[in-house]
Write a protein that binds this DNA or RNA. Structure first.
Lengths: 235, 235
DNA sequence: CGATCTACGTGTGCTGGCGAACAGACGACA
DNA sequence: TGTCGTCTGTTCGCCAGCACACGTAGATCG
């Protein structure tokens, strides 16, 4: 099987919350396949602000420019939910990538879905209320972390969403009053996924569908063998 | 030379304003290389609204999913400035694409720049004022149309920017008062590019730099031979 | 077990852009 | 040359989210 080579180059790593895997303009040294961690892709604005533009979990890879032959990162990649990932040196990745058609196909499909996510996010940021975007954010993160509880502060969420902190507190308060989520100090638990999804904008479902279309057995199978996954597929 | 084959498959076409080249979810039948026309990539929202997420001129291609092996469009592609383009059947394009490493490289680089444009647009839509975004839009369109005057109504611009029409009128009025632009019925002329650029957000310069990095001789040379270009490079 | 730090909750005034609506102005075409 | 349709200019009330600011409650640790 051709993934034998791939596996040999994959190295399991533990990623801590807040770790920065990539910085825009910097050389990409490794690609990461998240197993149970979640990584945010951020665009830096005016030097200080950093807005989330993409979210990568088990379904994807951090370091996508390499698949296009670009060796420099265009986003900041920030570990948003700690966990494990499989890591590979850029050189090894390029070598495998050029040799394996299925890997190419899988990553091109993923790239396409990621592009769709970006496009949708532009519209989302233009038209949708903070509350809807906040709900979408929670759902997308929970899906990728495969957990009901998210350990993030309002302050952090505000940065990701590009809004003020009290705005997040208010949005969270609203949803908590309606028993869709439950807030604690530095953590948010989803109580009612279904109704939370109804409170979020359609972007959540649209993006979910994009990744569903893009998914292939390949990436998952590589992870299962090496990463000790639980075998359930990402939502 | 390997572009000889490429040229044989390229067919010059005239594109009228308002023409829709692609519709999301539809099969991609042709790819287009704009010569002196400008094409907007739109994301549809809630069925009726359509927000501009990308702009394609001489520097790029319409139908990029094909370069990733995806045969279905993800955006609406709308001709925003009439003009000519070189068109190629999807099947011919795939064939050439798979055979030509330089073509692959050029398009992957372009794809990377386009991704950067999307990322930047997310931040732009979140943080920047209508006036700044309006100025950016004018500059980007003018750059690609290679003209000082843009023939678009406020109504149309409002749709592209995802705002109300009076909002555009106000933004245009502001800039006109300061002699940066001049408004006529259904047309806007840029009077002072430099100061207009200063009024736009940094996104304009950031995106410009992205495309500058991505540009290669290749795409231009193909166009020059067949398209009768003037030889100046896109701004 | 008290000090301190971090995170959450709330308030006030402000503004950019929204929705709707109307009036004036240019231009094409009869 | 008048008429009509399209495009532009402006207005009014409204609200989400901003900037700034202050108070309070869990956590942590000496």
């Amino acid at each position: 099987m051709e993934y034998q080579r791939l596996l040999a180059d994959l190295e399991p790593v533990t990623l801590k919350f807040g770790e920065v895997l990539k910085e825009p303009g910097m050389l990409i040294r490794h690609v990461y396949f998240p197993v149970d961690c979640v990584v945010s892709l951020l665009t830096l604005v005016e030097g200080h602000k950093a807005l989330q533009v993409g979210l990568v979990g088990n379904e994807g890879m951090v370091g996508m420019p390499l698949a296009l032959g670009i060796h420099v990162s265009s986003h900041r990649a920030l570990v948003q939910v700690a966990g494990t990932a499989l890591r590979m040196k850029s050189s090894a990745f390029r070598k495998e990538f050029l040799q394996s058609k299925p890997l190419q196909q899988a990553l091109y499909r993923y790239k396409h879905a990621l592009t769709g996510q970006l496009s949708q996010s532009i519209a989302c940021n233009r038209f949708h209320s903070l509350r809807a975007r906040f709900a979408r954010y929670l759902l997308m993160t929970a899906d990728r972390a495969r957990t009901r509880e998210i350990r993030l502060t309002h302050e952090f969420l505000a940065r990701m969403l590009g809004v003020r902190r009290p705005g997040v507190t208010k949005a969270a308060g609203d949803l908590a009053k309606r028993k869709l989520i439950q807030c604690g100090r530095g953590k948010i638990a989803i109580l009612d996924r279904k109704r939370l999804s109804a409170s979020s904008c359609a972007c959540y479902r649209i993006i979910k569908r994009l990744y569903k279309k893009a998914r292939t057995r390949m990436a998952d199978s590589a992870r299962k063998r090496k990463g000790g996954m639980d075998g359930t597929s990402a939502a």
